[in-house]
Design a protein around this nucleic acid. Sequence first.
DNA 1: TTGCGACTATGACAGTCGTCATAATAATGG
DNA 2: CCATTATTATGACGACTGTCATAGTCGCAA
Lengths: 207, 207
Amino acid sequence: MTQQAAARQAARTYSPRERMVFSAAQLIRRDGVGATGMRDVAAHAEAPRGSLQHYFPGGKDQLVGEAVAWAGRYAARRVSRNLAALPPDDRRPSRLFAALIAQWTDECLATDFALGCPVAAVTVDCADASDATRTAAAQAFTCWREPLTSALAELGVPQPRAAALATLLVSALEGALLIARAERDVHALTTVADELGPLLDAAVAPQ
Amino acid sequence: MTQQAAARQAARTYSPRERMVFSAAQLIRRDGVGATGMRDVAAHAEAPRGSLQHYFPGGKDQLVGEAVAWAGRYAARRVSRNLAALPPDDRRPSRLFAALIAQWTDECLATDFALGCPVAAVTVDCADASDATRTAAAQAFTCWREPLTSALAELGVPQPRAAALATLLVSALEGALLIARAERDVHALTTVADELGPLLDAAVAPQ
DNA sequence: TTGCGACTATGACAGTCGTCATAATAATGG
DNA sequence: CCATTATTATGACGACTGTCATAGTCGCAA
C-alpha cells in the first residue's frame, strides 16, 4: 500500500525516464545486473517498454551506467544529510558513521535483506559490463567517498588522514553489507560500526 | 603457457568433478553467477559436458553451492598458511593482515583486476540463488572468519575482541577488493591495510 | 565373453534475453 | 488547421540459457 502510493507519487513527480533509472538501480541492487531484464525495469517503473530504446539508445549498458551514477549521487546525498543531522553537542566522527550504518541496518531489516548496494552489484557482474559501465561504478565510489572525506575533515580529522579513513569506511560498510546479506544478520554491520568508532574519534586533531 | 601447463597438471591430479567445481568458482568470481554458463564451466575445466548432470544432479544451484564452499575453504587455508609463514621475530596481527591484503593486491595486478571474490559474487547475484545457495555463501564467510579469529587470538588478541576484529577485517577486505576492481587501482586495499594495522596491534593484550 | 554400472556424447526443448523494425499515437509549434 | 517531432506499441529475430531424454562408450567383476 505504502509502496503503491509512493509509486503513484513518483509517477507524477518524476518523468518516465527518471523512474526507469531509479527502478533499474533498485532492481539491480536486489537481483544483480544480469538477472534484471530491461522488460522488468520498464514494468517496475510503470513505464512503457517502447520508451527504453528511445531514452536509452545505448541499450542496457547506458541504463546500467545511469543507474549506478544515480546511486552514487544518492549515497553522497545521504552522507551530507547525515552530517547535517548530527546533534550539535556531539559531533564526533563515530556518530556520523554509526548513523550511516544504522540506515543500512534499518533497510536490511525492513526488506528482509533483499537489497544490497547497486554499485557493488555492477562491479561484480562485469560480464556484459563494458568499460564505460565499470568507469561509472568507479565514479560512483568516488562520488560517495568525496563528501565523506570532507565530512570527516569538517568533524576535525586532518586532511590527508580524512581521505584514507573515508576509503576505509566505504570499504568496511560495503563488505559488511555483503556479509550481512549472506548471513541475513546485521551483526557484521554493527560490529564494523562499533570497532571503527574509536579509531575515527582518535583521528580528530587535538584542538 | 603457464596457465595451460597448470591445466594439464590439474587434469592429472584432480578428478573432472573437482576441476568443474574449481572452474566454476574461478568463472563466477570473474564474471558473476548469472553470466557463467554451465557449458562454460565444463569447457574451462576441460571436462565433458555430459558429466555435469551426472556429478551435479542438483543443477546449477548445486554446482554454485559447491564452488562457493570450496572458495570458503580456500580462504580459510590461506589464513592459516599466512599465519604459519609469519616471521618469528615479528608476529604482530598487522603483519598477518598485511600479508593477506598483499596476496589480493598481487592477484589484482597479475590478472588486471579481472578476479573478485566468488562469495561476494554469489551473494550479490541472488536471482536464481536458492536459499541453499545463500546459506552456502554464509557458511563460506564463517568458514573464512573462523580461522582468522583464532589466528588473532593466537597473536595475542583477547577472545571476545578477536571475533569482532575478524569480522571487521573480512568486511574491509571484501569492500576494498570491490572498490579496487571498480577503480582498477589497489589503492583501497593498501589503504585499508595501513589504517587497520595500528588498530589491530593495539588490541593485543599487554603481557 | 557377458553383463552391469559409471561415465560420456549429443541433440532437443521451452524459456528468456537484448535488440531491432515498423507503425501508431500524442504533443507541439507554425 | 497542418506538419514535424517526441513518445509509445508491438511483434519478431537470433542468440543464448538450464535442463532433460536418449543413446553411446568404457572399464571392471563374474
